[in-house]
């Protein structure tokens, strides 16, 4: 094959690659604008040694407005506190999650809620539960010998 023909193909492929990447970036921008509350944010920094002694609220769920909840969650080796949370379909929940020991991963199975729990950070992430059922809260960052057993539950009722 003539070398100019191949070089033309090569250039064409290069432009195609750039265009493809550009299209992907547009999609990313679109999903960011539409689903941005899945993007974990930092509520504040925190001294991890104070998490259990008043620097962070006791683990609990509170209703701040009708259908709107705030959940204060501690991930520690090797449990989630609270270990079970209950909501109703359509509830909007803001989670505040931190760790007093090592890193954990706050992953609500089957959803986009997937947050790194880092000592020193209070992670904030918001979601609305649309499907009823039982969701596992799986720790997906290695935290020690019992890491695989660090699993909590969220029950969403009709």
């Amino acid at each position: 094959m003539d070398k100019h023909v191949i070089e033309a193909y090569e250039r064409g492929w290069m432009y195609f690659s750039l265009l493809m990447i550009l299209v992907f970036l547009v999609f990313i921008g679109y999903t960011l604008s539409g689903y941005a509350f899945y993007v974990p944010d930092a509520a504040r920094r925190i001294d991890p040694t104070t998490v259990r002694t008043g620097g962070f609220p006791q683990p609990h769920v509170e209703e701040v407005a009708p259908g709107k909840y705030q959940a204060y969650v501690i991930g520690q080796a090797f449990t989630w506190l609270p270990s079970e949370m209950r909501f109703k379909v359509g509830d909007e929940v803001t989670f505040f999650v931190t760790s007093p020991d090592v890193q954990h991963g706050f992953y609500i199975h089957g959803t986009n809620i997937n947050v790194q729990v880092i000592p020193g950070e209070v992670a904030k992430v918001k979601t609305t539960f649309k499907r009823p059922g039982e969701y596992l809260v799986i720790c997906n960052e290695y935290c020690g010998i019992g890491h695989q057993n660090m699993i909590g539950r969220i029950v969403v009722e009709e």
Binding site: I28, T31, L32, G105, Y107, N112, N114, N140, E141
Partner: peptide
């Protein structure tokens, strides 16, 4: 490319 796609990453992060 999937992993690098900001919003898609939450589906696969640490799985």
């Amino acid at each position: 490319i999937v992993n690098a796609s900001f919003t898609l990453d939450y589906v696969v992060h640490n799985t």
